[in-house]
Design a protein around this nucleic acid. Structure first.
Lengths: 266, 266
DNA sequence: CGCAATATTGACCATCATCAATTGGCGTGG
DNA sequence: CCACGCCAATTGATGATGGTCAATATTGCG
């Protein structure tokens, strides 16, 4: 398995062999987290960045009345708190959705490397810019779309990003969230999540059961969610793979054989 | 008047004299825009960054049904499309709210400067990270708060940011948006914006008339909007100015004499 | 002075929240 | 191995926040 950080950064641009070698050396140690445990908490001052290796996490803020707003989901390869490198204090928390492992990269190391390798600095910067693009689209999602479209859009986004790192097989992928968490991400109540989920299943767009999503109709789903993947800035990895659509575009046909690695959670 | 870019970047961290001098030399030319004209449009591939000098702008995306979601407001000093430096294509548009002037900074120049001055690169990176923090808070606003709280929060955010660049005087500031645009920013209908605006005025929190906001009760407003400014990462400029609260905290008392420069629009 | 855009108001309605109860799944301890 | 218990999922009923439509008033501007 290739280095998750390198794979992550190569989504958005290429790296030289030299740079890859440097990136290989960044991680100092690994840490495990239980489900529902914070990787970092609002207000923390951190001395290292957390690179998610296995598992899933979510970025969230707590509101005064105890409600929670999830602002993004993090998947393997994501650097969860890269902004901590330049901003003194975290303004939100990140929590593991399932048991997860994280690689720690000390800020000091990152500081030195980005000084010495401007292209690595740029690659990391670019990664945070894509994060910002995801936030923007998330604003559109909760600000303007109906509940069903919001959910469809979220499934498209997560599916697309998981596909880009090889975590989609046979049009299905692990997405270990509860309906409660979906509600917190979409700004709708749990009850309504449930109803919308049923509606989308009835329309045979996709199914979501016990933390696993199976796409039946990618075209219909993107239409329902008004999903346009360009904001994710995912480039095809090699020239032969010009097809940027992550899922089988044919209607309701299941086809095996997507290149991807198994990923264990829970 | 100090260089807007320098003033902007110094909000988040200090710069050396050497770096300031370099920053002085970045702008190649100025461009004017009419109200409602796009500074950049969705899909554009740009070769320079746009630094807003005077006026106001908003970042937005158009939805298939013609609705519009505003994702942030840009004020003088903001670099509107810094992400264009590293991402090939803009994923949204930026439009002038009023006649505005913009300074253009070629990507090539920025490229060279950031290669030669890692600290400048970091300062710019930090600026985009603060943008991302604003997006995150915007998600919370639109996703979880009631209409009145959304509006209150937005007024707090814009007021705070304007204050940081000296565009607030006597507890009031120019904020040239229509109720239509407020609705597009907050994800609520124009009609409802109007009603909520009246409600907040009735509560004597603030007044909004013909593009100008006057704060009556900063404490009450922050409470109503659940506003906590820490996400904006605004640091006090000098040691004597340890007070980070931008407005007079006393209730409904008008006090002149905030240090600030006049700013002309329309 | 008059047009056009914005603001305002009222009436009615839809999406979605809330509350409450039930079911289902799953791990654990007896 | 089964029962208990807990959490998530599901369903039904009711209500509120905010949307839509339409008409009128107001403001800014040429």
């Amino acid at each position: 398995m290739t280095n998750p950080l390198i794979r992550h950064l190569e989504q958005f641009g290429s790296l030289t062999e030299d740079e890859k070698q440097v990136l290989e050396s960044l991680v100092v140690r690994f840490v495990s987290f239980r489900a529902d445990q914070d990787l970092v908490s609002d207000g923390d001052v951190v001395a290292e960045c957390r690179l998610l290796i296995t598992g899933f996490a979510c970025r969230y803020k707590l509101l005064p009345d105890g409600r929670r707003q999830i602002m993004s989901f993090q998947i393997p390869g994501d650097i969860c708190d890269l902004q901590g490198l330049l901003l003194n204090k975290l303004d939100h928390s990140i929590s593991a959705l399932v048991p997860s492992t994280v690689a720690l990269i000390p800020h000091q190391v990152l500081q030195e490397v980005t000084d010495a390798y401007p292209d690595i600095a740029r690659a990391l910067w670019r990664s945070t810019l894509v994060d910002a693009a995801v936030f923007r689209e998330w604003i559109v999602n909760v600000g303007n779309r109906q509940a069903a479209a919001r959910l469809a859009h979220l499934v498209c986004e997560v599916g697309m990003r998981l596909k880009a790192v090889g975590l989609v097989q046979d049009d299905s992928f692990v997405f270990p969230v509860t309906q409660i968490q979906l509600g917190e991400a979409l700004g709708i109540s749990t009850v309504h999540v449930n109803r919308v989920l049923q509606e989308l299943r009835r329309q045979e767009l996709f199914e979501f059961r016990s933390g696993k999503v199976t796409i039946y109709d990618w075209d219909g789903l993107t239409k329902a969610g008004e999903f346009d993947p360009s904001y994710l800035q995912i480039m095809s990895r090699n020239d032969t793979d010009a097809n940027v659509t992550p899922f089988d575009r044919s209607q309701k046909r299941i086809r095996p054989g997507w290149h991807s690695e198994a990923h264990e959670v829970r």
